[in-house]
């Protein structure tokens, strides 16, 4: 699957309270959550997103709470993929489990610019920065996780094996 979208850069340690503040957690509706994605960083973030856009972040993206509302809000806001230097571990597994593609690629953040156009090949982890014409290789998923993704997330995986 090839994803294409504009870059939205953010820094290190973007935490789940920034991604979706707790005051919005009294809803479980993805649509509702999507509206408040990144609200405490930029209240208009969700409005500025064009479907398919890509978040490019620094270290430890998604640190903090276990709320699955965080990757859900990002996905519902229209973000197609998050590329970071590293992810906090619960966010990492939640993203996989709900089917939000995430990739670890340490070089990208320092070399790409806001609103550059990226093209991401999820199958092999190849990232193309179309604006700068540079290519990057992200770490690919371990086979076990590829299986979960192939099944369409954890729920399908569980449904399938039982």
């Amino acid at each position: 699957m090839i994803l294409e979208g504009r870059v939205w850069k953010c820094g290190d340690n973007i935490d789940t309270d920034v991604i979706i503040p707790a005051r919005y957690l009294n809803s479980t509706s993805p649509e509702e959550l999507g509206k408040y994605c990144m609200a405490d960083m930029d209240p208009d973030f969700a409005k500025k997103i064009v479907k398919g856009d890509i978040i490019v972040a620094g270290r430890n993206f998604g640190c903090g709470s276990s709320r699955e509302h965080a990757p859900t809000a990002i996905k519902a806001a229209g973000i197609s993929c998050v590329i970071a230097i590293s992810f906090a571990r619960i966010f990492y597994r939640n993203a996989i489990n709900i089917g939000l593609p995430i990739l670890e690629c340490p070089q990208l953040i320092s070399e790409t610019y806001q609103h550059n156009i990226l093209s991401v090949n999820l199958a092999n982890g190849l990232i193309m920065d179309k604006s700068s014409n540079r290519e990057y290789q992200a770490k690919s998923f371990p086979p076990f996780i590829q299986e979960i993704i192939k099944a369409g997330g954890l729920l399908n995986y569980v449904r399938r094996v039982e």
């Binding site: 619960i90 939640n94 489990n97 997330g153 954890l154």
Partner: peptide
């Protein structure tokens, strides 16, 4: 360890 709601469901 902490996990997400999907993990909890499974």
């Amino acid at each position: 360890t902490g996990i997400g709601s999907t993990d909890m469901a499974a």
